[in-house]
Amino acid sequence: MSSATAVALEALSTSMAVTSTDRSDIADIITAVEVVLTDSGYSLSADRRLALAAHALAFSRRIRTGEQLPEIDLHDFPEIPEKTVDALRNALNPYCATHDSELTDEEVLLFAMHVEIARIAP
């Protein structure tokens, strides 16, 4: 776990209970997303890393419990490069596979927005 992620987890913990399982999962998810960011030439500010950590926590809990996102119209998402979406799907699928869960298009696109935001508003 990077020190930046550790800082984000610490900040997250001041807002809600974060278990050791949560921490481990969040770190794995952030690492996966950061690979895509770095490969794309982008990076996360401390604020955006915290936002990603909060998202990762909610996502990991949904994966572990089987809870689904509310219905989202995929057309509501902004246009995101397919390369980004594919890279994130590849990066996050291993995490979902360990929980015998399927990564939905909506979940991938929500993560893709973090990359897209880093691109358009660094």
């Binding site: 915290l50 936002a51 950590a53 909060a54 998202h55 996502f59 996102l69």
Partner: peptide, 9 residues
């Protein structure tokens, strides 16, 4: 998804 990202930030 949870509103958490904005709130926590």
């Amino acid at each position: 998804g949870s509103g958490g990202a904005g709130a926590v930030t």
